[in-house]
């Protein structure tokens, strides 16, 4: 039903774009700018990657003639704000860690997806490079079987310890340990800060550590890590026990790369048709984002200055998106 609704609103949007756009600029595909005097409020969430994405999109929107306001918002609470229109768009929704408010509100038709951001992501178990001398068989996941002892701690003994996502992000590591049938226990980290702190400390002390993590992430620019080679994810892995190395269990594979979406307030398309078209086209390249993260988080460059410079230098990247929208 919700998809029907989106389809309908799409059709309406295109119709509007058609009629008004044609009379203004003569271009068949162009959309009207809409309410340029009212600011578009973009959610500014707390991690650097998303802040870069948001600043770049906002910067281009401003060049298109819009007024943009950046509003700080928590990752979970932002969706209630999108639902009631106090925020208008958020540009980096990691669907693996968006809480349950996001799917709920999307299903209820209170927020709409603008489509994937195109960010190439990765998620899985990783380890700092010094682990290779502790557990020589790495990166092959089978090596973990023999390294449980080296990774055992007081809390997990006799099992090895895998540092996992905070408990409120789901239980993927637990499922994988069960599926792969390795003598490990997943310890929830509690927060992103805790994950990062432990990674930094392990690098300093060369202590053993295997942890669940994702990319792109700024800390990966600071420390050298490698990813555990896990059987490549396929949908069959989570449904069919006979699939994969363990014939008796599901989840005996790595994680599918998380999808990163853009989402908006339901009234967005009608109010700012051209901005909507642009945001639909807007994509973020993981490599570019990582480069900017390094400059901002490690070299202390100002977020706004760095992204403005990027927009200036990469006209070839974003101008087609704007052209297609206006």
């Amino acid at each position: 039903m919700s998809s029907l609704k989106t389809l309908y609103s799409h059709a309406a949007g295109i119709a509007v774009a058609f009629g008004l756009g044609a009379s203004l600029s003569g271009s068949a595909q162009a959309a009207d700018l809409g309410a340029v005097d009212e600011p578009i409020r973009l959610a500014m969430v707390e991690w650097t990657g998303a802040r870069i994405t948001t600043e770049i999109a906002g910067n281009v929107l401003e060049r298109m003639g819009y007024e943009v306001e950046y509003v700080t918002a928590g990752n979970y609470p932002q969706f209630t704000a999108l639902a009631d229109g106090s925020l208008h768009a958020t540009l980096e929704v990691w669907t693996n860690n968006a809480g349950e408010l996001y799917p709920k509100l999307k299903e209820a038709g209170k927020i709409v997806d603008i489509g994937p951001l195109g960010l190439e992501t990765r998620e899985g178990w990783m380890y700092p490079v010094h682990m290779k001398s502790i557990c020589p068989g790495l990166p092959d996941w089978k090596a973990l079987k023999d390294c449980a002892n080296q990774l055992a701690t007081a809390e997990t003994f006799p099992n090895g310890r895998i540092l996992s996502y905070p408990a409120d992000w789901g239980t993927r590591s637990v499922d994988m340990i069960k599926g792969l049938d390795i003598p490990f226990e997943a310890l929830p980290a509690g927060s992103e800060g805790a994950l990062v702190a432990e990674l930094k400390a392990a690098v300093q002390t060369e202590k053993p550590l295997v942890m669940m993590f994702w990319a792109p992430h700024w800390v990966l620019a600071e420390v050298d890590v490698e990813w555990v080679d896990l059987p490549k994810y396929e949908p069959a892995c989570t449904e069919d026990p006979s699939w994969g190395p363990n014939p008796n269990a599901v989840n005996d594979c790595g994680v599918s790369p998380p999808l990163v979406n853009k989402a908006a307030w339901t009234g967005f398309e009608k109010k700012w048709p051209a901005a909507w078209e642009f945001l639909k086209n807007f994509q973020m390249d993981a490599k570019e984002q990582e480069k900017l993260m390094l400059r901002i988080d490690q070299q202390g460059e100002d977020l706004e200055a760095a992204t403005t410079a990027w927009v200036e230098e990469n006209k070839a990247v974003w101008e087609p998106w704007v052209k297609a929208a206006m």
């Binding site: 809480g99 408010l101 709920k104 905070p166 409120d168 929830p188 980290a189 927060s191 805790a194």
Partner: peptide
């Protein structure tokens, strides 16, 4: 304390927050 990884009531509250429950 749940932010540094516990499994008690504090963590249950966080999980509820994530689920908007």
């Amino acid at each position: 304390a749940a932010l540094v990884g516990t499994r008690d009531l504090g963590q249950a509250i966080y999980i509820a927050l994530g689920k908007a429950d």
